[in-house]
Write a protein that binds this DNA or RNA. Sequence first.
DNA 1: CCTTAGCACTTCTAATTTATGAATGCTAAA
DNA 2: TTTAGCATTCATAAATTAGAAGTGCTAAGG
Lengths: 337, 337
Amino acid sequence: MITERQRAILKCIVEEYIKTAKPVSSNHICSNLNCSSATVRNEMVRLEELKMLEKNHFASGRIPSEAGYRYYVDNLMEPKEMTGEDMLKLQTIFHNNELDLNDTIKRSIELVSEITNYTSIVLGNASKDNRLKKVEVVPLEPNKILTMVITDRGFVEHKNMVLPENVLMTDVVKTVELINKLVVNTPINEVSEKLEYEVKPIISKYVKQHEVLYNAFYDAFSEFTSKANDIHVVGRTNFLKQPEFSNIDKVKEILNKFEDTDLIKSISDDDDNGIKIYIGEESEIMDDVSVIKTKYDIDGEEVTIAIMGPKRMEYGKVVAMLDYIKENIGGMNEKEK
Amino acid sequence: MITERQRAILKCIVEEYIKTAKPVSSNHICSNLNCSSATVRNEMVRLEELKMLEKNHFASGRIPSEAGYRYYVDNLMEPKEMTGEDMLKLQTIFHNNELDLNDTIKRSIELVSEITNYTSIVLGNASKDNRLKKVEVVPLEPNKILTMVITDRGFVEHKNMVLPENVLMTDVVKTVELINKLVVNTPINEVSEKLEYEVKPIISKYVKQHEVLYNAFYDAFSEFTSKANDIHVVGRTNFLKQPEFSNIDKVKEILNKFEDTDLIKSISDDDDNGIKIYIGEESEIMDDVSVIKTKYDIDGEEVTIAIMGPKRMEYGKVVAMLDYIKENIGGMNEKEK
DNA sequence: CCTTAGCACTTCTAATTTATGAATGCTAAA
DNA sequence: TTTAGCATTCATAAATTAGAAGTGCTAAGG
């Protein structure tokens, strides 16, 4: 069992280490508690036996182990109040009517990154539950067109195309009409299938250059599904500001992880909707990194956001901000309906 | 005057230093030329007097000075052939019909970054010469709309908006009709002005909630102009791979420069349309950095691309690639018309 | 039995020394 | 003009030293 005093010491060490990034000595702690440094040292030995603390070497101070952080986060951490200033900044984002929910989230998270100096990730999953609203073609120059795919959630994907010489504009219009008639209101991830089995057979009857046109639209759709599922990373280089990343190889390692799309996407794998904290190894990103993440379920559409920093993160501060954002986004969501 | 042998030595030193990033010794050179290391040393002294070479300290080898690189680039550098493999990779991008010119450039430049391990920048200047083609509104849910701004060049900017309770859909439609009637075909950078002085007075007569709606559209346009003028940077972290950036402070410095939008935009200030090389200080970005840049003039629309690396860049290789890209983009441009 | 003063002990860090080696500049001979 | 030879310079790496920080343990005190 862990005693009350041990808890106090652990809390003190974790918080001090988070603040300074330097191993914490018994001397430093005894001024906060009513006991001598020798007593603290005795307790430290016990906390080390419990695997809550670690030492770099014989005579360094103690630093929290992953288990130590875990215990701190689960049992000792006090919710940290946001500053009025930070709240105000978030409020201006929330009350900007021109932003839709997705952009609001992105902006909020960018702000979190700026305030905390951590890295933020937004993983959209827009394709899920988006239905095709309409397909549109705007002729630009004689043989150049703009094609647009619009969903009922307001996502737009567009692409400029150069028409081969032998394709007629009337054929383009026919194709678009056909697609609009047959595919509108289909969930976006089923569109490809529907195109292949329902549109293609018909298109070949009515449209001369059906091969070329069909392929062009088919590609536009598949690009859409891949893009909609997008990854938004802000503040990658914030890691450079952390003393534990003063080593250039560590920097390289973490920056390379950000290039690994699959790894980043895997952050949203977990289905828990609360605010979850993954410390070091648990993050499955890198041993020196912690991730705080949550999912926002915006009328059926899932958005995962994650804040990434060194293990020595200000967990309380970040959790408070995410809480605040979640609360307000939830409110907006209600209002909107 | 600089002698033939001195030129040969300078060329040798620059190329060796580009390859190894280590000061070049007289011994290393004399094996390439038919003379002893002592002779080379004598010449090196003269090249140093001409400010073409520098030393780190008394007994280090020589490294090229900025003037040395300059002389090399202007007089000694041989155009380097691209490898067939690299050409092939570029060709697949050029022949991808679904990419418009802008995307083709972006992709090509990304490839250059990948091959060379330098950083690439594409500075679009889309707003220039873009005219408003149409404004469109798609109603999504009862009080939610998608607004789109489309230009004659095929740029699309869109935004989801939540309508305030008291705004009627009919008013929205009226506003859109008005804008389309009055502003279509206006160069995009003049739209704001025209909105303010021509549309606003009229809108207030016909539309009830004119303030709210007017502001919404006004903001959408100004966002468009700022976005269209976009900055596309690829391979920022490639600098980490360069030995001259093994110092974390240098890395921070260069990464911070990338955040400075105005600085990056200033790269396109120069009006020369050829391929220009700025070495070190000349780049006005950072003393340790060189920039190779050029402008592509695609039927009236200007795109600046720049490749950034250490002073110790493979100038010849990059120039060859940009040449090749320019040639092919030019060809596409013709074909398209 | 818990707390604490005292002290020996460990290890890191930073400063200094030492040794080695790479490459130079200069001199003098070919 | 070229080059061999050699003293000279300076960086880098390894070895040494000194100092500081902080621990663990022991033994005394409440």
